[in-house]
């Protein structure tokens, strides 16, 4: 599949009174046309800032994209003029945010918010926009779409609002949707409804999807490929099956061992990762995961391990990946 989005060596920093926060510290990844890519990591690992950077939605000041390039269909987003950017946002790349209450305008009707986008980007007449809005709401599973168009966001439940957000994201036939924790605020049965809907629609319409989440289960269920982030860096990438069954970074392994699994009988203790993630306002020497890592060796203290390929699209940023691989093979 052709490459749709190529992020290279992206660095996004925040200049605060407490110091420079290296929220995203040199990440590189690709998203192919029509595929679903999962980006996982814990709070503060830079996964959301990385996503907002793609659309240049980082508040400046205090934030700034310090270096790197983001190529979408070959064009560098970081070099675009404001007008080019406006034509891109919401049209070719759209976003679904975590909190559907704060991302919809509370004083405008659902219909107005949907139609405005389409009139602007697709140059539709108000009548055309209205009929397409009705069609979109039906597509995302909202009953009585005609009536819903006249309603305000507070009339709808959280799940319904997130459906509206998805309709909005799809309204201008984007090539890429970035979903930042799209179901974190929702109950588990509603989460399943929304994720199944997103999967069906993106597959059917051939839209690529970046799904950003801390939930390893969601990624396992929906993503074709996965990137794992820690302290502003991608530390491992690969197919979902590689990441979950043949992890080649101690952090990924640690995460997988930390989550309880309900499909296995009870009785075993979890194996948590000791310690805490580092403070990103301080300069980190060597591998950021070293203080929590049971595989660390002397060189981890001073050298930053590069994200090396181990073949088959599987990458890992760990000096000791061969030892880890050997141990896991032995264990299985």
């Amino acid at each position: 599949m052709p490459v749709l989005l190529q992020v290279e060596n992206l660095r996004t920093q925040f200049y605060t009174s407490a110091g420079t926060v290296r929220a995203v510290d040199g990440i590189s990844y690709t998203v192919n046309e029509g595929e679903t890519v999962g980006i996982v990591g814990e709070s503060g690992c830079g996964k959301s800032v990385g996503a907002l950077s793609i659309l240049r939605l980082i508040p400046d000041p205090p934030g700034k994209i310090a270096s790197g390039s983001i190529r979408f269909q070959g064009r560098d987003i970081l070099a675009m003029s404001d007008e080019e950017l406006r034509n891109l946002r919401g049209a070719q790349i759209s976003m679904v945010f975590q909190e559907p209450m704060t991302s919809l305008n509370p004083v405008l009707t659902i219909g107005l918010q949907l139609c405005e986008t389409m009139e602007l980007h697709l140059k539709l007449t108000p009548e055309q926009a209205r009929s397409r809005a009705t069609e979109l709401l039906g597509m995302v599973g909202i009953s009585e779409p005609e009536r819903r168009l006249q309603q305000y966001p507070h009339h709808l439940s959280g799940g319904m609002r997130q459906r509206v957000m998805i309709a909005l994201a799809l309204s201008c036939n984007p090539k890429l949707i970035i979903a930042d924790e799209p179901t974190t605020a929702l109950d588990v049965t509603i989460q399943a409804q929304i994720l199944e809907l997103m999967k069906d629609l993106t597959k059917r319409l051939g839209v690529a999807l970046i799904i950003i989440t801390h939930n390893l289960g969601v990624v396992a269920r929906y993503a074709d490929r996965v990137y794992v982030m820690y302290a502003g860096k991608i530390i491992e990438g690969g197919s979902a099956s590689d990441i979950y069954h043949r992890p080649l970074h101690p952090y990924t392994l640690g995460l997988l061992r930390s989550v309880p699994r309900m499909d296995r009988p009870r009785g075993n203790r979890l194996i948590p990762i000791d310690g805490q993630p580092p403070d990103l306002t301080r300069e980190i020497e060597g591998c950021a995961y070293r203080p929590r890592c049971s595989f660390a060796v002397a060189r981890c203290e001073h050298e930053v391990p590069p994200l090396d390929s181990v073949g088959g699209g599987h990458t890992s940023a760990c000096f000791e990946k061969a030892r880890l691989q050997g141990l896991l093979k032995e264990a299985s």
């Binding site: 289960g217 396992a220 269920r221 979950y244 069954h245 997988l256 989550v259 499909d263």
Partner: peptide
């Protein structure tokens, strides 16, 4: 509805 962290499962 609960996803299990294992793509094969």
């Amino acid at each position: 509805a609960v996803p299990i962290p294992d793509p094969d499962v």
